[in-house]
C-alpha cells in the first residue's frame, strides 16, 4: 500500500499523482493520512484503484469519480462525490449537504447521516444512506436510486423528475410532485440488491417507495392563473 501524508505532500500533487496513474498500474491501494479537512481530495480519479482516506475530509471529496473506490474513515463536508460517473465512494461517518449532487452513475454509501439536499439533481447514481437524510433530499432528482435506512427531512423529492426513493423510517414531508408509490416485487428486488451491494443492514420489507407524480412535466392550462 502507498501511504501519502498530506501534512507533507501538497493536495494538488496528491490528486495529480492519483489522476496520472497508468491504466495497467500495479499501485492499486492508496492511503491518505493527515488530511485535516482538505477540500477536493481524491477528485477526478479514472482508474480502478482504491483510495482510503483516514480522518475527516472537506468539500467535494471524490468528485467526478470514475472507476475508483474511495473510502473515507471519518466525516465529510459539502458535495461528497459530486457528479460521480462510476466506481464507489463510501463514508464511514456522516456527510454534509449535497452529497452525490448531479451524480450520473456508480454507488455512494454513507454509513452515518447525510445533511440537506442529499442526491440533489442526481442523474443515475445510486446512493445508500445508513442513517437519515436532511431536508430537500433528492431535490430535482432525475434518475438513479436514493435509499434511506433512517428518516428523511422535510420536502423529500421536491420537483422530482424520475429517480426512485426508498425510505425505511419516517418522512417529515414530501416535496412538490413527490408521491408514495407501490412497492412492487421488481422494486423490492432492486432495493435488496442495493442494500446488499452497499453492505448496509436494512429490512427491505419495511421500506416505502416514493417517486414522481409526473404532474410538473408539462405546463397545465388549469394553472395559468398562477402566473
Amino acid at each position: 500500500m502507498n501511504v501519502i501524508d498530506l501534512s507533507r505532500t501538497p493536495l494538488r500533487e496528491v490528486n495529480s499523482r492519483l489522476q496520472k496513474l497508468p491504466n495497467d498500474t500495479n499501485e492499486r491501494l492508496w492511503k491518505l493520512i493527515n488530511v485535516h479537512g482538505e477540500h477536493a481530495c481524491a477528485v477526478g480519479l479514472t482508474k480502478p484503484i482504491e483510495v482510503q482516506i483516514d480522518g475527516h475530509i472537506g468539500y467535494y471529496c471524490g468528485g467526478m469519480n470514475q472507476e475508483a473506490t474511495i473510502v473515507v474513515n471519518g466525516q465529510c463536508g459539502v458535495g461528497l462525490a459530486e457528479n460521480i460517473m462510476s466506481g464507489e465512494v463510501r463514508v464511514k461517518g456522516n456527510a454534509s449537504a449535497a452529497a452525490g449532487a448531479t451524480g450520473q452513475g456508480g454507488l455512494i454509501v454513507i454509513e452515518g447521516d447525510a445533511g440537506t439536499r442529499c442526491g440533489i439533481s442526481m442523474k443515475g447514481v445510486d446512493i445508500v444512506v445508513g442513517g437519515s437524510v436532511g431536508a430537500m433530499s433528492a431535490f430535482m432528482a432525475q434518475a438513479g436510486s436514493l435509499v434511506v435506512c433512517g428518516d428523511a427531512g422535510a420536502n423529500l423529492g421536491d420537483s422530482l423528475y424520475e429517480a426512485r426513493i426508498y425510505v425505511q423510517g419516517k418522512v417529515e414531508s414530501l416535496g412538490a410532485d413527490c408521491v408514495e408509490k407501490k412497492m412492487t416485487p421488481h422494486h423490492l428486488a432492486k432495493l435488496e440488491r442495493l442494500l446488499k451491494r452497499a453492505g448496509i443492514n436494512g429490512d427491505p420489507s419495511k421500506f416505502k417507495r416514493f417517486g414522481s407524480a409526473r404532474k410538473l412535466y408539462n405546463f397545465h392550462v388549469d394553472n395559468v392563473d398562477a402566473y
Partner: peptide, 8 residues
C-alpha cells in the same frame, strides 16, 4: 464554516 478550522 468549514471543518478545516476544527481539524487541529
Amino acid at each position: 464554516s468549514e471543518f478545516r478550522s476544527l481539524a487541529y
